[in-house]
Design a protein around this nucleic acid. Structure first.
Lengths: 198, 198
DNA sequence: CCATAATGCGAAGATGTATTCGCATTCAAT
DNA sequence: ATTGAATGCGAATACATCTTCGCATTATGG
């Protein structure tokens, strides 16, 4: 951030700009998101934007960081029963994922579509770490011993598979397959993949 | 195409432009690919480009169509043994996929990264249809009866999961996980998912 | 209340890209 | 060889975006 906000109104401005960025991406897509448009949506001048953000990228990074923090918070508060059966846990996570991606008028979908030019690692790592830890706990409880090495590969595959399959489905204007079927399919696939002790 | 090529040199020009586009994308990324740069790489003027292609998009579409045709050809010639075991078939396909993505200096990876602003369906449908048909044949041979409805969902999930997991891994500059491990993991996951008759 | 710093402004500058158009060159058929 | 069509050219046009800078407005502390 170019200038540290000292007064209350400038803190407000930073928040307003980040939210305007989100709305602009939703309304115009990432490519159609320009600094004048963001400023207009924020009800603010372009100059003010550059008072607090080095450039457009910094603004978008701030948005991603904000949402990533939100998602991390949501994941931690997601009720999990590490004593329960695997299928319920996975199924719950899948449903949570679909709900999240469908929320925010498609902001997340647009961000993930453009993962390669965004600080994707911030978010992907959050998911990766969360589910890795979750799986670790679950397996320790149920099997005592488990090849942890292999678990990283499995979680990497599962997280990426799920994320992009979901996005591909949601981004499709005329999806041939119902979301519920794909959710069930993903759940089946993941549970079976995790269940086999290699 | 704006003008149908009548003379030999113009056919050559179309081919040269398409190949230059491929090289430009490899060298500069899709965003860094501009019509002047393509023309320069082709050793041709910008004007000539617009003689044969309505706009930049048409040129890129032509490139995608060309490669999609090539991939379709490659898939058909891929030796498959529908009498053999499932794991060998899936493993072979995965290896073929990794080889394809690693080839062409990263052209395919760059194209898939930007799937959402490309005629992705052209390629995705090719893969979808190919593996759907392949799976159908295999299952008819081995089980006689199989819930075909469900098979579409499974193939959708498998194709997208595999494609994007591969791309995510290859696009990572410092991959934590070795490609061979991920390939094996994907194979395991797919085989198990397909093997369970639902 | 005043002085100073912080904040807000938006037209203008700098850059870059897609596309066109009039003219030059080459081909192919007679 | 000639002529009309096809092809090739690239400077110029049109447009859009990011970013800056000098000035106006607002807040804060003494």
């Amino acid at each position: 951030m170019r200038k540290r906000p000292r007064q209350a109104r400038s803190k407000q401005m930073v928040a307003t700009l980040i939210e305007a960025t989100a709305r602009c991406i939703v309304a115009n897509g990432l490519d159609g998101t320009t600094t004048p448009r963001i400023a207009e949506l924020a009800g603010v001048s372009v100059g003010s934007l550059y008072q607090y953000f080095e450039d457009k990228e910094a603004l978008i990074d701030a948005l991603v960081a904000d949402r990533a923090a939100g998602i991390a918070r949501g994941l931690r508060q997601l009720p999990v029963d590490t004593a329960g059966n695997l299928r319920d846990m996975v199924g719950g996570a899948i449903r949570y994922g679909f709900a999240l991606l469908s929320a925010g008028d498609g902001l997340y979908v647009e961000l993930i579509k453009n993962w390669h030019r965004m600080p994707t690692d911030k978010v992907a790592d959050v998911l990766q770490q969360h589910f890795l830890e979750l799986a670790r706990v679950w397996f320790l409880r149920h099997y005592r011993e488990y090849p942890i090495e292999n678990l990283q590969v499995r979680i990497f595959i599962i997280v990426n598979s799920t994320l992009f399959t979901m996005v591909r489905l949601i981004a499709d204007d005329h999806p041939l397959l119902p979301q519920s079927d794909v959710a069930e399919g993903l759940t089946d696939m993941i549970v079976q993949y995790l269940a086999v002790p290699s």
